[in-house]
Write a protein that binds this DNA or RNA. Structure first.
Lengths: 115, 115
DNA sequence: GCTAAATATTCCAATAAAGATATATATATC
DNA sequence: GATATATATATCTTTATTGGAATATTTAGC
């Protein structure tokens, strides 16, 4: 069991807010959002994502790592040789957040067009 | 009317994803999330936030600016001398996103505790 | 136009994130 | 244990974000 609180000036709430902020960090890159959008259709391997997006493999893996580290996506090994890693959304709430963000931007653009 | 697309290699979708990513950027700081949490209760002035959080006023204004620039919060001038700026959430979807992020972190912590 | 109160902005040093390239690891087969 | 395929990580340079301190702006009243 690990000690979670570093010092007495950091409240439980502060700690939760930091984790929330940290999670949102994973949503701040267009390519990561694109990955999440792809995963909304269902599980995809790294090379699936490579074929669809036509980006270099290390670039893709780097961004997948960010999503993985924040617990936004989950993985399993598959394929005949167990050398294919399939990624999926770790929690349906991720999808709901992405959709809301998309809608919010849409709302903002519509509000602009009223000018 | 402004030209929105810089070049032909940037698709409509890419453009939307960039805006979405940019919006999420405003959610990546614990203090900004704290502000949003406060504004969920209702409109607050800068000095309200100052009194509640006990942070330096420029610090607060800097973070409010980020939220304002992304269209996450809206302002109005009020008070007898019109020198008080009241902040509120710009769109109810902001609240829903914050709550989902909070729940997602909560889910993650619960999943951890099963270990 | 000066003052006061409330809020906003600028500047700068420190830290963190991004992306390309090179390299490493994991898994099964031979 | 060498090979092949799929994926992951490390390194390095560039660029963006952070926060504190000082300063500026806005508004109304005098």
């Amino acid at each position: 069991m690990e000690i979670k609180r570093e010092n007495n000036s950091t409240s439980i709430t502060e700690n939760a807010l930091e984790k929330q902020a940290d999670l949102c960090q994973s949503l701040t890159h267009p390519f990561r959002l694109k990955i999440l959008k792809l995963l909304q259709e269902g599980e995809k391997s790294v090379s699936d994502i490579e074929n669809i997006t036509e980006k270099p493999q290390p670039f893709i893996s780097q961004h997948l790592k960010v999503l993985r580290d924040k617990g936004v996506v989950a993985t399993r090994r598959g394929g005949d040789r167990k050398n294919i890693v399939y990624y999926k959304l770790a929690n349906p709430k991720v999808l709901r957040i992405c959709k809301l963000v998309e809608e919010l931007i849409s709302d903002q653009l519509n509000a602009e067009n009223v000018d």
